[in-house]
Design a protein around this nucleic acid. Sequence first.
DNA 1: TCTGGGGTCCTAGGACCC
DNA 2: TCTGGGGTCCTAGGACCC
Length: 329
Amino acid sequence: MARALRLCPSLLVVSGHYRDYSTMSDQVMDRLHRVSGLVEQISIDEAFLDVSDTPEPVEQLARRVQTQIHAELSLPCSVGVAGNKLVAKIATEVGKMSARGDGPPMARTIVPAGAEAAFLAPLPAEMLWGVGPKTAARLAELGIRTIGDLARWPEKDLETRFGEWGRDLARRARGEDLRPVVSEHDVKSMSQETTFARDVSDDKELERTLRDLAAQVGRSLRRSELAGKTVKLKLRWPDFTTLTRQSTLSSPTDDDVEIFQTAVKLLHSVRKSGQPVRLVGVGVSALSEPIRQLGLWDANTDRNRRLQDAVDQLRERYGREIIQHAKTP
DNA sequence: TCTGGGGTCCTAGGACCC
DNA sequence: TCTGGGGTCCTAGGACCC
């Protein structure tokens, strides 16, 4: 039964150490795709591979992948192998942490089927996916410090305290994870934000920044052939409190000006003129394919569209700075 | 890490409709 | 007309991840 394989795949997480180089990322992912048809990239330097259909023994496979990437690309990488994504990810982390010696770690950590809970038990609860500082603190109040502590805690009680999330927590602590490796994720939102070197009080400067961010978001949307229906403004005051305001449009947009105008309206609704701001951001969500309808009233829209395409192309070729908005006096 | 940027998911409340 | 329940959408904020 093919299904059974999905429930217990053998997984590798490869973790490179090249956070700054996206072309490196492409090259590594290219190598990984030769190993398995099912690769899930989870960040610039990490990916899950479903190797349950690969005849080669996983230990040998893991070594081969690691050696190949190191030899061909001069990149160190760590590999974790386990029956599911959760444990494979943690295995990789554990390997990296326990790697000794100079230079970046080249660890291989393999957790055999059935040994998941025992492998996780001594590790700190924060190593579980989804347990950050806040949850860790709440767990510590109960005397729960390791994943083993968590696994021993009555699941019903976790459910009472944490709701649905408590049940997930209990499952994860036992090393259970049924999520399949998926090669493609739909993008849910796109955003751009910037933190100012100093607080900005000038309305015009703020709006210029907003216009620039909106243009960047618009360009990302067009490049991905997506449009968004909800525009979100993010603001951070000098005291670091952060707020968001969003507005849903009547139809999805990928237009710089529409994104900007929506964002600036939101800005005016929460900020008094002259009020200092530390960070400003613009995002677009509720993404779908852009709807382009050309009707009686759309000659103008069509012209804007062609203009925007031309600007995109210029910027693609000569950089973002090549075309600027005329500064308002 | 007195704090960068771009994401995801979850929760909770209110509006609105049937 | 009043009341209530449930579903869905929208909004805002928070926790978390890399």
